[in-house]
């Protein structure tokens, strides 16, 4: 699936990276704990999180995460969106809660990678 499919599935808003929506997405990870993301995340991932601070962008940067999804209607401030834009990371926002957002993406065929 592509980032655009992720966006459509969640009916999410694009906060930055409108021109990067055709990138491939192979797996997803949902967490508010960045160390857990660093431990388990895979290549070409999207990250769903409710945490809104610069370290979310840094974590995504270290892992080459293609797309960040802020759940529960969280709105990152402009400096965070700017950081993501500088690094070519798509940022989406959805009002869905973490569990629902993950379930919708799973239902659409996205997986979290092997245990």
């Amino acid at each position: 699936m592509t980032v655009r499919d992720v966006k459509d599935t969640l009916k999410a808003r694009v906060l930055t990276g409108e021109d990067l929506l055709d990138q491939e997405v192979r797996s997803a990870c949902g967490s508010d704990m960045m160390s857990d993301v660093l431990a388990f995340s895979k290549d070409h991932s999207v990250l769903l999180t409710g945490l809104c601070n610069p370290q979310v962008i840094r974590t995504a940067e270290m892992l080459d995460i293609v797309c960040l999804i802020f759940v529960r209607g969280k709105k990152p401030d402009d400096s965070i969106i700017e950081m993501a834009a500088d690094r070519g990371i798509v940022v989406l926002a959805t009002g869905h809660r973490m569990f629902s957002a993950c379930g919708m993406l799973y239902g659409a065929g996205l997986r979290g990678g092997a245990v």
Binding site: M34, S35, T49, N53
Partner: peptide, 17 residues
């Protein structure tokens, strides 16, 4: 620190991994 998204107890294990 936990409220900032760290302190899950994965730091050193991740570094080793």
């Amino acid at each position: 620190v936990r409220s900032l998204g760290f302190g899950a107890g994965m730091g050193l294990p991740n570094m080793k991994q």
